[in-house]
Write a protein that binds this DNA or RNA. Structure first.
Lengths: 185, 185
DNA sequence: ATAGAAATGAACAAAGTGTTCGCTATCAAA
DNA sequence: TTTGATAGCGAACACTTTGTTCATTTCTAT
């Protein structure tokens, strides 16, 4: 791909992320993004159809990366390394977040975090579904209820963690999470 | 209060709710709300400062009602005195939703449901805190983690339920939920 | 019946949207 | 190094939306 394209695309993403940390999505104008990214109006619209399209692209980039990275981790380590090693997909995800992977934390703590959280959960749901399908054949609770419960409460936990300024280590959080989830498997 | 005020306020809420079922919050214009509610432009701005203000007022009305009703239920036993009396606050909340209380379902299933879900969870958090504060102090899991886990996964469950077209009865849902939550208390 | 409150519609400036057009700068490949 | 193609630029565009003002009409509470 043309270097120029990459450069403007990156500038737009960066400006957008930056603006999101200061004001809500709906109050950000395309004009502001253009000004902050210092690109021509025409250039913006050559890359993205609308502001919504930009948001979609950003979500895709962010969560596509983090989820596929987590999926890779399960191929090499398995979903849980029961007992012995402290490594779980959840811990892996949390560590990625802790490292502020691609400024994802900023987006999950911004005023419009719902947008990203919802997207995060959707991505996560797919991951959990493929990885957990066999493991949660649980008594009288429907499987998709359980899948939803796991991905839903993981996302809610992340939000709680971030809102509380990430005082806990990923490992501690992982312990808490497993304490509330593992009894169900 | 002046009847005219109540009437326009209701007309605006109704039009807004109606529009939300068809398009996303950010794509709804004040002009559309005005047209749908059939009120003057000046009248709208006499009632609400902005579209955001209208959203806030709507959330307040909806969740203020449902939560305080649930809180009351815990004090007044015999509200539903037949055989299928709700045994938990959760069941009570679900039954309220099932009765499509104030069109709340429409708002929780609309394109912009994140906005309402987040507000729902915030209201719920207060309720859960008062209800469960004494019951969940028995572990190496922090109490506010647990409170967040409960309200968070309840809200996520409601979303799952609504997205799946509410096939389960409130009672069945309540059983599932208690199955994943009660082991922790 | 009337004073005060509420609703109305027209008009307004300001800001934002998404598009077109002609021009320039940059790139990749021959 | 030349060259054709691609990307970016900025001005201008017609358009919509916003939030406000103001004079006027209608309703309501007492």
């Amino acid at each position: 791909m043309d270097r120029r394209q990459q450069k403007t695309r990156a500038a737009i993403f960066s400006a957008f992320t930056d603006l999101l940390s200061r004001k809500s999505y709906s109050h950000i104008t395309v004009q502001e993004i253009i000004d902050a990214a210092d690109v021509g109006r025409t250039t913006f619209y050559a890359h993205f159809e609308t502001k919504d399209d930009l948001l979609r692209a950003l979500c895709e980039k962010l969560f596509g990366h983090i989820i596929s990275s987590a999926a890779d981790c399960t191929h090499t380590h398995g979903l849980y390394s029961d007992g012995a090693a402290p490594e779980s997909v959840f811990c892996h995800l949390l560590q990625h977040l802790q490292e502020n992977d691609r400024n994802i934390i900023a987006l999950l703590s911004c005023e419009s975090s719902e947008l990203f959280l919802r997207c995060f959960k959707d991505s996560l749901n797919g991951l959990i579904q493929t990885q957990f399908a066999d493991r949660c054949r649980n008594r009288d609770i429907p499987q998709d209820f359980l899948i939803n419960h796991i991905s839903g409460s993981f996302v809610e936990m992340v939000l709680w963690w971030i809102r509380g300024h990430r005082k806990q280590s990923p490992e501690a959080l992982d312990r808490y999470f497993r304490a509330v989830i593992e009894p169900l498997l």
